[in-house]
Simulated assay, not measured.
Amino acid sequence: MHSLYINNLHKKLSNLNNNLCFHLFVIEQFNIDSYERMQAKPENYLKEIYESNKFADALNIISKNFAQENESYTNELYKNFYITLYSHFDYYIEELFDFLSIVIGSQSEIKTSGNKTEQKSRVHKMIEQIIGEEQSDLKEHIETELLQTYDYIRLRRNKVIHNMENTTKELKTIARYHGKSLNEYWIKILNRKKQSDEDMVQDNEDIKVTQLNANRRHKFELSYQFSADEASLDQFSLNEILSFLNILRKFSEIFDEKFMELIYKFHKDKMILFSLDLFVRGQKNTDYYPIKTFERKFKSFTYINFGIIIHREETSEFYDNYISKLRA
């Protein structure tokens, strides 16, 4: 099952990945092409070396300091990329929240039950609202690692965007007590474990080709550092940024499916009625379909949009609702 919003999120993440890779390509090629030129004039400003570049005057950087300055600028780029990455994901969560409010009929902000001092994230609260207060143990319905991953990424984003000197207690707790298990969880989920030498080499003829492919495959040693120390939580390496991009893509895929499965499990009729509303709105004329045609078209519509398989007897139960909605 899937929501209406997951494909759009993945397109945005793909676009971000392309933008980052383009920038990295340009910088890498500049370093390659300009190395000898800057080495020959270490005391000159970039604007003296690259006079024809119309942006050179804006940078008071001495050639010999370029590598250090580039590292500083790049880290700021990674911070902004991380913030943008999270913003796209946060908008997707907002879409799911609005969708949930419509489907189960609650338009008010989700409330946290009990007198817990820990502030729960919107993701926690959405799952609680779907399953109801009588099903208070979230572990039975969604993996704890997913909720911890979301909290870690959200809290780390808050630290970066608010330029916090001190790390929040919640973020420290996740990094210190759950970081190692989260690293292992995502390495397993994303299947990024290095292959052994025996796996790499099948026979003597394939040694060179296999090793070349292995080098290409592991050009970026993706690092899942949920257990990073406090001092490094507002800094990012390239491998870490690429890791979080992969994690958010896979996280959203897993969470989206689980989110829809839980809605269908606990609010099946409401979910089908929501799909029926969309189906009616998309119908070009006001003439209702015969029941056999309705069953076929509505089953197909619901499967394409939500991945939900409705049986024939179930679709016939909603035929009267279909006619009344169409006439409304």
Results as ranks from 00 to 15, higher is better:
Asp206Pro: 00
Gly132Asn: 12
Ile131Gly: 00
Asn246Tyr: 07
Phe244Ile: 10
His267Phe: 06
Thr173Gly: 01
Ser232Phe: 11
Leu262Met: 12
Phe255Thr: 03
Ser196Phe: 06
Asp197Phe: 13
Ser181Arg: 12
Glu134Asn: 12
Glu240Met: 07
Gly132Ile: 12
Met200Cys: 13
Arg176Glu: 12
Ser227Trp: 07
Phe255Val: 07
Asp256Phe: 01
Leu248Thr: 03
Thr210Ile: 00
Thr173Leu: 08
Tyr185Asp: 05
Lys169Cys: 02
Lys208Asn: 12
Glu143His: 10
Asp199Asn: 13
Ala175Asn: 04
Asn215Val: 04
Arg154His: 09
Gln148Leu: 15
Thr210Gly: 05
Phe266Arg: 08
Ala231Gln: 14
Thr149Trp: 01
Phe236Gln: 03
His162Tyr: 09
Thr210Val: 00
Ile254Leu: 14
Asn191Pro: 02
Glu261Trp: 01
Phe259Gln: 04
Gly132Thr: 11
Lys169Phe: 09
Leu138Trp: 05
Leu233Thr: 03
Ile142Thr: 05
Thr149Ala: 06
Lys270Ser: 13
Lys188Phe: 11
Glu230Arg: 08
Lys159Cys: 06
Arg154Trp: 06
His218Glu: 14
Asp269Arg: 11
Asp234Val: 07
Phe236Asp: 02
Glu253Asn: 10
Asn158Gln: 08
Arg176Lys: 14
Ile189Glu: 15
His267Ser: 11
Val201Asn: 06
